[in-house]
């Protein structure tokens, strides 16, 4: 899923301090799971802003809506009739949702309420970690199912750097060395000999480097 975290409320206030009518728009997908932009967080942000404006002696109407998804035209249409009433919409969706909103509703400013962080998973309640950088050319098949692109700080494709120590990365003792994990996994799979196969220079044109990407599937297009 896409993992996000809440923006500091001060930054959000900067965006909307002169508004009189604000919609806070949550999303029921990834940002709900990572507890950054679901219905609960919409409520918390709305209360915080109401408190702030009250203390400022300002009368500001703040509404709360949480959509099933913000990365889908169909669900965004649900606010078609009300969107124009607001001076600003704070979207708590990921960067995809914020942009899709902005593309659909031209006349209302849309502000992000979260920072979109990475593609990751919930390791435990309150701990999300990165697993994928969407390089567009998955190599998990040769690395024992552990991704060096997203999990090695130098995205090294042919083994650990000299900074791997006791299973940890040189940049932080809290971070596993991806190559230690890969080696452990190859060993468990009885494939340690595969380590010596040189991974050729990667084609990064399917990554961010190749420019904004699209997937076109003519077979499923209507």
């Amino acid at each position: 899923m896409i993992v996000a975290e809440k923006k500091p409320v001060e930054e959000i206030i900067e965006y909307v301090q002169d508004c009189r009518k604000i919609l806070i728009l949550g999303c029921n997908e990834c940002v709900t799971v990572c507890e950054a932009g679901g219905k609960k967080e919409v409520g918390v942000l709305a209360s915080t802003l109401r408190m702030y404006f009250l203390n400022q002696g300002k009368e500001v109407k703040i509404d709360e809506i949480t959509l099933e998804r913000q990365c889908d035209h169909e669900y965004l249409e649900e606010i078609r009739d009300v969107a124009d009433q607001y001076d600003a919409i704070i979207s708590l969706a990921c960067g995809v949702g914020v942009q899709f909103m902005a593309e659909k509703y031209h006349s209302v400013p849309i502000y992000p309420g979260v920072n979109t962080c990475f593609l990751g998973a919930t390791e435990e309640r309150g701990l999300w970690t990165e697993r994928c950088q969407a390089c567009g050319n998955c190599m998990l098949g040769i690395t024992g199912g552990i991704c060096p692109v997203s999990r090695c700080a130098k995205r090294l494709l042919n083994g650990p750097c000299g900074g791997s120590s006791n299973g940890k990365c040189e940049i932080s003792k809290d971070l596993d060395c991806a190559w230690q994990l890969i080696i452990d996994r190859l060993k468990a799979l009885d494939r340690l000999d595969d380590y010596e196969k040189i991974c050729p220079i990667k084609d990064w044109s399917t990554d961010r480097a190749g420019g904004p990407r699209k997937v076109v599937r003519e077979d499923v297009q209507i």
Partner: peptide
């Protein structure tokens, strides 16, 4: 070489490139 991670240096907010790794640099 691959090089130390930039977080150790004077530009910890910079990008790192690693288009190639040290093995691929040898091959190049």
């Amino acid at each position: 070489l691959s090089g130390d991670h930039q977080s150790f240096g004077d530009c910890p907010q910079g990008q790192n490139v690693h288009d190639l790794d040290s093995m691929q640099l040898l091959q190049t």
